[in-house]
Design a protein around this nucleic acid. Sequence first.
RNA 1: GCGCCCGUAGCUCAGUUGGAUAGAGCAAGUGACUUCUAAUCACUAGGCCGCAGGUUCGAGUCCUGCCGGGCGCGCCA
Length: 557
Amino acid sequence: MWIETKSQLENAVQSAVQTAMDDGELTLNSLPEISIERPREDAHGDAATSAALSLAREAKMNPRVIAEIVVKRIEPGGAVEKIEIAGAGFINFWLSSAWREQALRQVLSEGAEYGRSSRYAGQTALVEFVSANPTGPLTLGHGRQAVIGDVIARLMEAVGYDVTREYYFNDAGRQMRVLGESTRARYLELLNLPAEFPEDGYQGEYIRDIARELIAEEGDRLAGEEDVAPFRAAAVERIFEQIRATLKRIGIVFDVYFSEQTLYERGLIEDVVEELRAAGCAYDKDGAVWFRSTAFGLPQDRPIIRSGPDREPTYRLPDIAYHREKIRRGYDRIVDILGADHIDAYPDVFAGVQALGCDISCMKALIHQFVTIERDGETVKMSTRRANFDTLDDLLDEVGEDAVRLFMIHRNMNSHLNFDIDLVKKASNDNPVYYLQYAHARAASLFRQARERGVAEPGVDNADLSLLKEREETDLIKRCAYFPAAVMSAAELFEPHSIPHMLRELAAAFHLFYDRRRILNPAEPALTEARLLLVKAVQTTMANGLSLLGARAPNQM
RNA sequence: GCGCCCGUAGCUCAGUUGGAUAGAGCAAGUGACUUCUAAUCACUAGGCCGCAGGUUCGAGUCCUGCCGGGCGCGCCA
């Protein structure tokens, strides 16, 4: 409702400016774009524009005079009850009660669909995230990324995209070889055979677990094995099993696990090298092959194939091939979620894809900062080995799935996330997770009460919604009405943290309403009915919002 | 040294694309449960928005330079 009203008002103001120009009362070089926003203060109405202020210079007129010229020409339609000029020349709009009633009916009639839109229907999107190499269990950093990626995918789905969630994994190259060697060394150790643990091997206890399982299944049959492949395969398989299980706990299921190895098998890696050479973007130096990053304004050229007899590609080369494949697969929007440690790497990859002649305007990389853990008032850096919360699973065990999801998403991804374990574990009023869920549960509880007391089921069609005129009520209606716009903007700007933020405000407004106004009131059945419908709208909005975040909306707490 | 991110109340952070008197939560203090769930609500207190310039009608927001913190800058991914 707000999305439509906003653009109607923008058009109405713009037409008024046009008319004023036609009438010769306003002199401008061209018709300006008008932007309507929600004022911070209630006293400034429901919608406002600062257009008169920004036009003042060009028109060489006092902003208030411009505002007057414009306002008297505005034909706002039924949604607007009142227009005022305020302050330095702001034009403020108050929306009518009819508008609020219609907004409320929309929430109720759309139900679980409320907040979703078809703006991007027919378009496809690929969201790549986590993409942790299968060398160990997922860490907290992966947890943040997993939740950010999944919520972005949900938001994009909500505005109409057909979204593919993809996990890219490296099952070729050096890291995997080291993983295989580490596993073999543990395997041999457990059999009391001489073993050489690789210098940069994976130290974690989980490698021993894998080796133990391998012994249980295969005995010492692999002891004389020269090739690391069976060890590597066994390790990858088991680690992936665990990763999938962890992700599933927080409701994340990938559509595609994309293997790097397949790029080699299909010859796509070599193709990229040849094409980059042909385009003059790759050259030989010091025995290695280099990508000419500097041709794309980047600070330095980077090797894509190592020197030495093996001619092994560096990670950048398969990444370029992979991203070119993404574009070839025909997505309208391609989003990568990356940790801050990749900040220097992705520009080269994007430039590489561009060098291959691809249009990269559909590609977007989102970088998120790291997670730190706070416990007992002390900050523990995530990278610290042997900290209590190395793994995402440990954290989930400790604080639960909903809390992890909400906490991981509730801050701007550009900022470091301080995960306060003590706060999240507290099942009390200072826990923001419960605050949202409690609002939903409270609403559900009202309907249970209504049923127990024999209050008639409220009917949307006949209810007199004009009875909802208290400040707490109109405020709630407006907040529900803004929800679809909040979803749209979170999806378009890739700002998932704005959703829990607006839900918190909605919850606060609901708790205040609950505290101040009696909802089930036998003396006033018509008002009770209207208020129950309002409660239903809040409950619906809250449930839809929590669902976008992948968190439960409990009916009882 | 170079690149990216961050710096807002004691703490953790929002801040609607540059708008009107900078907001929440926690922590501190005071009050509200015989009444629909007190996992809640109300009130009080708390601010040179890191510092210094600049742009403009208007800057927490944009530009420049400093200061402080994080992450990178590898023929690791």
